[in-house]
Computed example of a mutant assay.
Amino acid sequence: MLRSMYSGISGLRNFQTKLDVIGNNIANVNTYGFKKGRTVFKDLISQTVAGASGASATRGGVNPKQVGLGSQIAAIDTIHTGGSTQFTGNTLDLAIAGDGFFQVSDGSEMMYTRAGNFYMDSTGDLVDGDGRYLMGLQGKPSDGTDYVDEGDEEMGLPFDPDDYTYGKIQIPKTASSMSIGQDGTVYFVDTTQAGKDAIAAEELLFRPQEATLKAAIKGAEVALKADPEDQGLKDALKTTQDNYDLAKLPLDQAITDNKAVLQVAGKLQIATFSNPGGLDKVGGNYFRVSANSGEGNPGFALDQGFGKMESGFLEMSNVDLAEEFTEMIVAQRGFQANTRIITTSDEILQELVNLKR
C-alpha cells in the first residue's frame, strides 16, 4: 500500500510541475518573442519481484515481474518554433522570420532575445526596453560626423572590415529619418549642419542680386516682345539670363552637394545556436548561453542558415491557447487520478487497522 501511495505522490508532484509550466505559458500568451515550455515525464525505477528466465528444452521463457515506483520529470523543453508576426508600422519594431536571435549587451554580458521592440535613446544608440545596446557592425566615423557613404550601402560580404567596427548601432542626431532592410542594414537620411550652413552662406550672396537680375530679365523680355526680330534685344536677354544663372550656380551646387542622402549607420548582427533549446531563460525576454547550447554563431539576416529581418513587425508568443487549455485539462485529471490512488491506499490501510477490532 505504501508503494502505491508514494507512486501517487510522485504523480502529484509531476503534474503540479506540468501545471506550473502551463500556467507560465498562458501568462505569457501576449509576451513578444516568448517561447513556450513543455513538460516531459519518465518512469522511476521499477522493483523486480521476480527476474526473467530463459527458455529450456522443456519450458518456455518467463518475463520479469516488476512493479513501478512512480514517475519523474524527464525534461522541461523550450519550444523555439516561430510565433506569428504582428504589424506595428514602427521602424524600430523588428521581427526575425526564421532562425536567429538579436544580440543585446549592457557592456558586461551578451544576451539573446527574439523580442524586437527596440528604441533610440537620447544619444542616438539603438537599445531595448532595459537599455541594453543592440549590437552589430557600425560604420566608423571618419571625422566624428561622417558615416559610411552610399557606395557601401549594401554592406554585403565580402567587405573591408577596416571600414566597420563591432559594437552598438548609433544614429547621428542630425538624422531626419531611418529605415532597416531585411538583411539588417540600418539606413538613415541626414543633412548635416555644415551642409545647411553652406547653403545659407550661398543664399546670403545670391539673394541681393536676385531681384536686380530678375528685373533686368523682365525688362529684356518686355522689350523683345515689342520687337521680336531685334537681334540686339535677343542678345541682351540671353546675357541677362546667363548672368542670373551664373550668380545662382554656387547656390545650386551647395544644395546638390549637401542634399539629404541615404547613408548606412551599420548592420545588425544576429546569432544562431546549434541547440537553441539549451539556452537558459533568464527573464525579461532574454536567453543566456549555457553549457549545452553551444556558443552563438554570429551572422547577418538573409545569410544561409539565418532568417530575414522584418521592420515594422513584432514576433508574438508561440503559445497556442487551445493546446494549453487541453493540456491543462489532462494535467488536472492526472492530478485528480493520483489523489484517488492516495485516497484508495489510505482507505485500504484503514481497513487493515480495523481488522484488530
Rank of each mutant, 00 (worst) to 15 (best):
S317N: 02
Q304F: 07
D280F: 05
Q47V: 10
Q72T: 11
G82H: 07
S293G: 06
Q193G: 04
P298D: 05
A115F: 13
T91I: 11
V21A: 04
V319C: 09
G232A: 13
N243R: 15
E202W: 10
G219K: 15
L69N: 11
L279R: 03
D99G: 00
A337N: 14
S108D: 06
K140E: 04
N24A: 11
G33A: 12
G181P: 03
E109T: 06
S290V: 06
G278K: 09
Y187W: 09
G98H: 04
E315F: 03
R114A: 02
K140W: 06
F313I: 10
R288S: 09
K196A: 02
K140Y: 05
Y244V: 04
L249Q: 15
N14R: 14
V289T: 07
I180K: 06
K259G: 06
M135L: 11
I9K: 07
Q47T: 09
L19M: 13
R3W: 08
F118P: 05
I199A: 09
Y6W: 14
F335A: 12
D121P: 07
A291T: 08
K218N: 14
N28Q: 00
K35M: 13
V261G: 06
I45M: 15
K248P: 02
I22K: 08
F287A: 10
M135Q: 12
V40H: 03
D152N: 14
D183Y: 02
G89I: 07
Q336G: 00
I96Y: 01
D197M: 10
D280W: 02
E150L: 12
A200D: 05
A271D: 12
T58A: 13
G68P: 01
R59S: 11
R38E: 13
Q304G: 09
T343C: 05
G8T: 01
G195W: 01
Q350G: 09
T58H: 01
K281M: 04
S46E: 05
S311I: 09
L302F: 10
